[in-house]
Every structure is written in C-alpha cells, then in structure tokens.
Write a protein that binds this DNA or RNA. Structure first.
Length: 708
DNA sequence: GACCTGCTGCGGGCTG
C-alpha cells in the first residue's frame, strides 16, 4: 500500500491530519515516484490534492541533509507561491527542511540567508530564475547544483506559450548546472496535449502521465437574454441578482470593463432592495491590496453571501475558499478556461458545482453550448505549438551572453543548439540570428568571443528584460491618497468623465500626464472603463462543434426556453443550406446584394483565409465571432477565383513580407521578435499568427453550399 | 470580441 512506502515523518503528518484515505492521484504518484527515477505529469481535477501528490513522495525520498537546494517549485504566479508556501511548510513540519519564497516581492533577508546556507525547498517564478541567471550566475551554481526534483505547478499555463519556451530553456540551463540530472513533476487539471506537457522535462521517453479522469458533478443552466446595446440588459441583471443574492458567487464576464459594470450594477440593485453589500471586482487593474483584501474576505467567510465579478485573475490555483456558484457571461474562449473556472466552486468533497451560463447573442450562445458539449465529451483543445521559437531564442542568447559576461561564439551556438527548448532550430538559423544581433550592436564580437553590445546593454540592463511577455503602460487611479487601481490611458480619461473601478463609481478630477496619475472622487453614475486588447483566438474544434449543433436535431435539457428558441431559430436559418458533410461543406448565403461565407473554423485559419481573399482581390470583412466573411464581389467572381485561392500558399513568405512591411504592428504579439532578421520575423508570423497548413487542408476540400 | 503573468541592484533616507 502506498501509505507504507512513505517515510515516518510523512506518515505521521497524514495520521495527524486525520485523513481516512489518500486520493487516487496521491496513491498512484506515491507508488511511482518512490519506486522509479522517471518524470511525471500528474493530471487530475482541481482541488484533488495534486500538491500533496507531488510533495508527499518527494519529501519522503529526498535527503535534505545534503547541501544545496534539493527541490525547486516553479509557479506562474506570485500569489500562488504565497498560497502554496503555507501548505508546503505544513507538509514539512515533521522534517527539518527550510522552505524559501524567491520572487520579486519576497523578503530579501531570507533570500540572503539561503545563499549563505543553500538547502531545502525553493518556491520561484520563471522570471526570478531568469534574473538570477542574468545577474548572479554564481548564485545559480551555489543554490542549484544539487537539485533532485523540480515541481512545475499549473503546467498547462506554460504549454504552448512563449513563457513556457522560456521556462524550458531555463530548465535546460539548470540541468547543465547540476552535477546529476534532476527529475521533473508537472501538475495540472487541464491538459490538452500530454506530449507537449512531457516536453517540459527534456526527456519525453522517461516521462509518464498519471491521470485521474474522475470529474465532478456539474449542474449547468443556460440563460439567454438577447442584447444589441453596449450595456447589459436590465432583465439579465435582475435574473442574475436573484440567482446569486443568497450565495457565495464568482462571476466571469470576460472583460475588465464588463466585470466593473456587473459589480456596480448588482450592488445598486442590492442596495435598493436592502440586500448584502459585499460586491467586489477583481482583475489586473484593481489595486493589488484591494485584490488581496477581496481574496482574504472570500477565504475567511463561511456564512455570509458575497459576489466577486472577475476576469482570469481568479481562474488559476489560488484557493479562495468555498464558492457555491459560478456564473459565466457569454462564452469562454476555450474549454480549458471553462474547466478552470468551474473548478473554483464546490472545492470540498461531495459538493457538486453550479454553473450558470448567460448569453447575450446567438453566436455566443452557440459557442457556449459547443464548449459545454466538448467538455462533456472530455475534449480539451490542444495548445498552439511552435517548433521554432526564434524570438525566445534571441532573448536567451542575450541572457546567456550577459550571464557569462561574454562567451565564445561557437560555445553560444552549441549551448543554444543543445538546449531542449530549441532543438528544432537549425545551427545555421542560430548563426544567422546571432550575426544579426552583432550587426545591430546587440552583441559585440571581440576576436572569438562575443559580449553584450552597446545597444544590447540598454535592453539587458532594463528591469523589463526578464519577462518574455509585453505589458501595457498604466495610469495610477488615486482617491485622497488611496490607490484604487491602474488603468491604461484612453480618450475616456479626461477631467469630469466618470469611470467604474474596484466596484465603485468615480469622477475624474485631474489627470497628471507626467507622473501618470488620475485623481478621482466618488460619484453616483458612470461608464465602464475602456480597455484595449487583441481579439480572442478560438480553436477550430469549437467552431466545428457549433456547425454540428446547427445540423443536429438533438434537444438539450440544460437550455432554458429562450436559449432553446434561439437555437431552433438558428437551426431554421441554416436549414436552407443542404450541408451534408460537416468536415467540408460550408454555407454560402447569397441574396441580391449580399454574399456571406460561413467557414466554421478557428481564428488563425480565418485570418489566413482573409489573407488569401485579399491576395485574390476579393474585398471582404471578417467577423470572427460568427466565423463568417461578408464578401463584396459578385458571386460569379468568388466562384471563379475560389479554386485558385490556395495557390499563394506555396509562396506565402513573400506575401507575408509585403504585409509586414506595410503593417509592422503585425508582429506586436512578440516582445523580442522585432530584433530578428526580417525573414525570421516572417517565419514567426507564419507559425504563430496564421495557420498555413490547416488552411491548405481545409480549403482543398471545402465545398461551398448555396442556399436553396 | 480578451484575459493574464514578473522584475535587479544600488544608494539615499528613515526608523528603531
């Protein structure tokens, strides 16, 4: 039995806790981690004891009397480190093991103490690890040359992202520092591609997946309130108020502005009918201290009802206590996100989760139903993969050069080539990127060595160097010396305008452009703040499911009457197309002055189709929410050009080059891509912004079905 | 029709 395999202090911990039995994922991981030297991915639903599943066996197995940090825990969030610190410290209470938090807001004295006496467990962020490699490479050696295990929490948040590539590179560099190779354990509730998760260990063959598919019972209820205005309909808000007033609730309205609108308006209704006043908003623009208060309030409040209107800030791992209900307003952009959000409620055993899904337009309703059905089928969208992350390679080249205070060019090429984050990138490509860095003075060549160049110094010595993601510039919002939050500057930010922030209404009194400050006073009425952002990227499988729903006759018991009626209306609208083969048949609506093509495919493919339509001179407008194009040429022209539409795919690089020269903002998704040679920028855009291969496959078989 | 994430080192001034 797994329990007997654990060391005595850990068995005592479990006995003291009074646990009747171990969770399935814990039983499995204890048996495997203690008996093998493999890497593991532990996949099991939210609140199923994954942290313990990793640490119970690791704490039993690792000898903490040896010098050096023995276990490194990596988290995507500071807040999660602070949360896990208490849990891990408690797990260690019968052992003599130091647990140290290491991130930008962690206590420096405790960090210095660890450097003097490296031991125990360190909880760290990827950016703090990066900073140590850049500024204090001797500390990396001092601390991290005797690691036995690395635990990566919420590993799905790294998969398929630039930050994930950076983390892989840092892990690869960490292995080089170690005297013996360490093992890796990754944790997540929502993994769409296990092979991509395995790549984080650098050794896919020696990585096993332990999976507990047990799902929690979820009661889903769909509500439909059609809306054409910018603000949410009052009927929806009233319905939402009644459903949530006597519960502990999280509401996810998909944007920061709308989160504020919901919090303020529900609070107003509650004030009017003398209900509770604990309505909050929680997102990146709300001041950190205010957010922490909201989290604390939710966690330490067992009886009172409350309502938090939030964005993805409350989507990941942070335990905010018991929540009875989750409300999603309009469709999530991914199934992963839906699962994570649902996982926030009913975190105790035997409690089922309640989920309300409100929709305000027909396409959002259809997308929401599609996500729900795919979730029920056990489908999670696979991450977007990028085999050639040239931009992150460029960043890591600068990081390595700075960390070594100069390095032989041949060694730098070798280190990058052997780094498992970049193993698909050719040596000739690495050399071309490095030569370009020398040309633009980011690197300087001294005989056989390279050091950081004049232009590179500015970049490498900046506080912004350690992360691979971009951030917007914000104005601080202050009322009588208290910081309410930070919002990006927009035309709305002028004196005497009213804005919503932190679930309250404010009047702008003074805007200080120099110190980027907005002075506000309380007000009675206002508008939601404006935020800029790119569009969502929807996976093609969700769109395909939407098409399938339209051509199915199945009724769904989770829909309310208006949702049911709207679904039937959509089905009736699409019954004029004789769509038979769902993979390839696509509706083409032709009326006298209008031509509309429904592609029912993912965002990146729609972008690629739009590029091809533009190349062919077919004027069009893309609406990604309905996955459709308004075509502004006569039908005959579209039909005659249709078969040759995919021809430019053979020579797509030159077309993207022209597009990039006309519109440099195309590369805005990449923080470091702007320093790449142009042909590498084009390759990056081709891989990440468009989807050339899938578009080719789809268009080769796509059949346009006109209405009867 | 988007959301989120993190951050060094040094020196000056203040507190206990």
């Amino acid at each position: 039995m797994s329990f007997d395999l654990l060391s005595e202090p850990i068995r005592k911990y479990i006995r003291d806790k009074g646990w009747e039995q171990l969770r399935p994922i814990q039983t499995a991981s204890i048996a495997k981690i203690l008996s093998t030297d493999d890497n593991y991915i532990l996949a099991s639903r939210t609140a199923s004891g994954k942290t313990e599943a990793a640490f119970l066996p690791i704490l039993s197995k690792v000898d903490f009397n040896e010098t050096g940090v023995r276990v490194v825990y990596i988290s995507p969030l500071i807040a999660l480190i602070n949360d896990q610190f208490y849990r891990i410290e408690e797990l260690c209470k019968n052992l003599d093991v130091t647990v140290t938090k290491w991130h930008g807001e962690a206590n420096k004295t405790l960090k210095d103490r660890l450097i003097k006496q490296p031991n125990g467990i360190v909880l760290i962020t990827p950016e703090s690890l990066e900073a140590m490699f850049v500024n204090k490479p001797f500390n990396v050696k001092q601390l991290f040359s005797n690691i036995k295990y690395v635990v990566i929490d919420e590993i799905h948040s790294f998969i398929g992202t630039d930050r994930g590539t950076q983390l892989k590179s840092l892990l690869s560099r960490l292995q080089n520092v170690n005297s013996k190779p360490f093992n890796i354990v990754g944790l997540s509730a929502t993994i769409g591609d296990y092979n991509e998760a395995k790549k984080f260990t650098g050794n896919e063959l020696k990585t096993k997946v332990l999976l507990d598919r047990t799902a929690k019972e979820i009661n889903a209820l769909f509500r439909y309130f059609k809306n054409k205005n910018e603000e949410l309909p009052l009927k929806l808000l009233k319905d939402l108020y009644i459903e949530t007033k006597d519960n502990k609730v999280l509401i996810f309205p998909n944007s920061r502005g709308r989160a504020e609108e919901v919090a303020v308006k529900l609070k107003k209704i509650s004030d009017r009918v003398k209900g509770h006043s604990d309505y909050f908003s929680h997102h990146s623009s709300v001041d950190k201290e205010v957010r922490e208060y909201v989290e604390y309030f939710a966690k330490n409040n067992n009886r009172q009802s409350f309502c938090i209107s939030c964005t993805s800030t409350l989507e990941l791992g942070i335990d905010i206590g018991t929540v009875d209900e989750i409300v999603q307003i309009d469709a999530t952009h991914s199934i992963t996100s839906l699962i994570q959000r649902v996982g926030r409620s009913g975190r105790k055993d035997r409690e089922s989760s309640n989920l309300f899904l409100y929709a305000t337009n027909e396409w959002s309703l259809l997308q929401s139903v599609a996500c729900w059905l795919l979730y029920k089928e056990g489908f999670i969208e696979p991450p977007q993969t990028n085999e050639k992350p040239y931009d992150i390679l460029l960043h890591q080249a600068l990081s390595i050069t700075k960390g070594h205070s100069g390095v032989r060019l041949t060694d730098l090429v070798k280190q990058l080539k052997e780094n498992f984050a970049f193993n698909q990138v050719e040596v000739s490509e690495i050399e071309a990127i490095l030569n370009h860095l020398i040309e633009i003075d980011f690197l300087e060549k001294l005989q056989h060595e390279v050091i950081i160049g004049v232009e590179g110094e500015k970049i490498v010595n900046s506080r912004d160097f350690y992360s691979v993601f971009k951030t917007e510039e914000n104005f601080k919002v202050v009322n009588a010396g208290n910081t309410i939050g930070e919002i990006p500057f927009s035309p709305q930010i002028i004196e005497d305008e009213n804005i919503l922030l932190s679930a309250k209404i404010w009047k702008i009194k003074f805007v200080d452009h120099k110190s980027k400050k907005i002075e506000v006073i309380p007000a009675k009425d206002g508008k939601k703040p404006m935020f800029y952002g790119g569009g969502a990227t929807i996976h093609s499988k969700i769109r395909e499911k939407m098409l399938e729903i339209l051509y199915s006759e199945t009724g769904y018991d989770f829909l309310d009457q208006p949702s049911c009626d709207e679904t039937e209306t959509l089905r009736k609208d699409f019954s004029v197309f004789n769509v038979r083969i769902l993979q390839s048949d696509r509706p083409l609506l032709t009326t006298e002055k209008h031509l509309q093509l429904f592609t029912f495919t993912g965002t990146r493919i729609n972008r690629t189709i739009q590029l091809l339509l533009n190349i062919a001179g077919i004027k069009n407008t893309l609406d990604d929410s309905s996955s459709s194009f308004d075509i502004e040429v006569p039908k005959q022209e579209l039909i005659s050009k249709w078969n040759s539409l995919i021809q430019p795919l053979a020579d797509i690089d030159s077309h993207i080059t022209i597009l990039l020269q006309a519109n440099p903002a195309l590369l805005d998704f990449s923080k470091w891509g702007r320093y790449l040679p142009e042909n590498f920028q084009v390759k990056l855009i081709k891989d990440k912004y468009f989807d050339i291969e899938y578009t080719g496959q789809l268009l080769a078989t796509m059949k346009l079905i006109e209405n009867k």
